[in-house]
Amino acid sequence: MIAALNGAFDDISKAMRLHRVWIALAHEDIGDQHRRTTLGPLWMLVNYFAFVGTFAFVFVTKDASNPSYIAYVAIGMLVWFYLTETITMSVSLFQREASFIQGTTLPLFVYVMRLTMQCIIRAGYSLAGCVLILLLSGYGINTNWLLSLLGLLLLILATPAFVVVFAFLGAFFPDSEFIVGNLMRVGMFFTPVFWVYSGQEGVQEYAYHWNPFTYFLEGVREPITAGIFPGHSLAVTGYFCLGLWAIALLLLGLYRKRIVFLI
């Protein structure tokens, strides 16, 4: 166990020393995806506005005039898009990086950070859109935004662990790419991204309280929309991060050398 953890930390520290590699590759990835388009990466902002607009003004028309609901959806979508993209892309990570893994001695964590960086850059565009929506909705920048940053920080800290866990899952269980993709699509409806929980019973109660993604969302959202310190959400998210990182480190330590034989 100790040897496995040492191996994992060794891989991570080598990858962090190679930060210029994964930062450069992530930028190229983003650039390549939009290189031939007129709007370029701004398409990510357009996508974000389209989704928030749809939910705020079309899908739930009765709340359309409520600025706090628009802010609720805007932040919910920001976090949910980030989570869903990170998780679904992680499942096929090692398969996509097969030529690098089989041809270089780069630490496995380099690929994890490459994807993490990609997801953060993409989320940066959505974040710009979210801030704009919040300002237009009458939520001026105040100290509550700093509390919201705490939630975002936890989300970012959890990202490499999410990537590791789902990348190993995808390597050992290729069918999971489709299973996870479908679950995340359905998961949006079981997570308070656009619906508001106000003490309902039944499925919504379970979906709200027993869904770890709820706390990632609320940790970012509550300070701005409710003006409260999201202590409970941050605590749950923090414990979840610790658990996820423990699994990620074990997977990395025990199985990183076997990935090359699996892909």
Binding site: F172, F173, P174, D175, R258, F261, L262
Partner: peptide, 8 residues
């Protein structure tokens, strides 16, 4: 190395 029978 083991011929991993991927769960499928």
């Amino acid at each position: 190395y083991r011929l991993f029978e991927k769960l499928t």
